[in-house]
Each structure stands twice: as structure tokens, then as C-alpha cells.
Amino acid sequence: MTTPQMPTQQPSPPIDLDRLIACPNCDALYTTPTVESQDKAYCGRCHTVLIAPRRKAGKQLIALALTVLILITAATLFPFLAIDAGGMHHDASILQTAFAFEGALLGLSVAVMMFIVVIPMLRLILLIYVLTPIIRDRPPARWAKRAFGLSEALNPWSMAEIFALGCAVALVKLSDLAQVQYGPAAWLFAILVVIVVVTDSLMCRYSIWKSLDQ
């Protein structure tokens, strides 16, 4: 763990702003430390991770993003849960789930669709678009900064992994009443949760923004 050093004195003007980094959560100012791959630089005051570079993170991120894209597409098309009770059978796909809200609640259907399918996919497409030129050592893509900014803004609204956990809760609630079967899509969503967590740990925002700045 590296704790970056505070600039000790007022640097004599002109200040080299490129060599400074400010903590986004508490505004503490540091001279940008050199951080080895696998190491992390934390803010000494509020412990926010500032820099966490990883070798080949770009390639791995693209691979994971593509995987999640395929998983979400597949999970949307296949039925993901099926129920058996009293000789009756019914199964549901993600699309049917999103459109469970009807009438006055239709807006909620649209929101659910956005949260679990549209926003996660859009975010990953943007990430792939931004990272591909970087890992090939090409200049950044045309709207790369805007694309990555949008992808970052969408981050809290991307809720595919929360939906996956929701499936588990729904299963527990129903287990007494009926026989519930997992469809292929339920497993796809389970894998998705793991990948989303790994993706977040690989992403070093500082490094990506820096490589886009040319």
C-alpha cells in the first residue's frame, strides 16, 4: 500500500499541475506517486483508492465486458425461472419480468428494463469502445472522453447484479409454495454477478483518464 506524499511546500509557480492528484472525496492534494502494477495508492485521509494500475487490465476488461454482454443477451432471451404447482407449469424470461408491471405501473416496467438490460449493456459497449484503441496503442477513439464519462455516470444505475440477487430472494420466498426450477438464464446471471465484481476491481479510473488525455 502506498500513501502518496503531500506536496510539502507551496510549489514555486508555475505549478506543474500534471504532477498533482486531488482526492475526489476529500480534496486532499498529493504529488502523483509512481504506483507499481498490483499496488494501490490510497488517500491518507479518507482511504479512497486513488490509483490501482494493473498490467494488461485493459485487455482483461474488454474480455470481461464482452462476456457480460453475451451473458445479458442470452439471459434476456432464455426463460430463467420456471414454476410447477398443482400440475401447472409457467416460466418467465427477463423480458416478461420487466413487463410484469402493467397499467399505471407501466413506467416501472420501462425503468426495470433500463436498470437490468439497457444501461448495463450500454455501459459495457461504451467501455469496449473506449478501451480498444488504448490497448492497441492507437490514439483514443473520437468521442472517447465523452463515452467514458457517460459510462462512469451510468455506473450506479447499472443493476444487473442486483437483479441476479433478486432472483435468489424470489426463489427463497416461493420455495414453500411451489416447485421452482432454474432455467439456463438464472445460471448466466449468477456468473454475471461474479464477473461484475471482478470488472470493478480491475478498473483504474485514473489510469484510463490519463491514457485518454493526449
Partner: peptide
């Protein structure tokens, strides 16, 4: 290492930090 008490903020130095990419202007 804890650096409390004598923390320099970007504002103290007449600078402004970006909350999205952490760079300083």
C-alpha cells in the same frame, strides 16, 4: 501512514480537483 491535521487540500493551494478523473487545475 495517516496524514491528518496537516492536510493540504486543493482548495488551500488555490487549485480545484476534478472529482471524476482526480486531475488538478
Amino acid at each position: 501512514m495517516e496524514v491528518s491535521g496537516s492536510v493540504t487540500t486543493a482548495r488551500d493551494m488555490g487549485l480545484v480537483g476534478c472529482t471524476r478523473c482526480y486531475s488538478v487545475s
